[in-house]
Design a protein around this nucleic acid. Structure first.
Length: 116
DNA sequence: GTGTTGACTATCG
DNA sequence: ACGATAGCCAACA
């Protein structure tokens, strides 16, 4: 008999939920890259999907989206955008320090396999 | 259905 | 360290 594949819509909703859950688990004062979030959500090589998901976040979301940055240690937003300043402000309030416009990933990257 | 875009990333010069 | 390039994949026109 034919398998019962879920619709693309349902799968997309599932992926979004997985991405949300991963981001929710990032502790304060730590950051994750898009690729890392995708991998932890079971979506390897879907870094751009994480970006798309965050871009469409509802305005009043409680998700700590500001803890997701790119692999260069920079924020993936135009520096002149309100969102950029919001993200940077929130991170600095969590004691995540910037050097120029970059974060030291070696220091602030969340390593779930390491004991804190 | 096809081509373009983008809150990505690894690699190269 | 930095910009250009190619690969990637879902959303959008």
């Amino acid at each position: 008999m034919p398998n019962s594949p879920e619709s693309d819509d349902s799968q997309a909703a599932k992926n979004k939920a997985a991405i949300y859950q991963v981001i929710r688990s990032i502790p304060s004062g730590k950051v994750c890259t898009y690729g890392q979030v995708a991998e932890m959500a079971g979506l390897a090589r879907a870094a751009r999907l994480v970006g798309h998901t965050l871009r469409k976040l509802p305005k009043g979301t409680q998700l700590p989206w500001h803890r997701v940055i790119n692999s260069q240690g920079k924020l993936s937003l135009p520096e002149d955008s309100p969102s950029y300043r919001e993200q940077r402000k929130r991170l600095q309030e969590e004691d995540v320090s910037f050097v120029g416009n970059k974060i030291k990933l070696k220091q602030f990257a969340w390593q779930p396999h390491h004991r804190q």
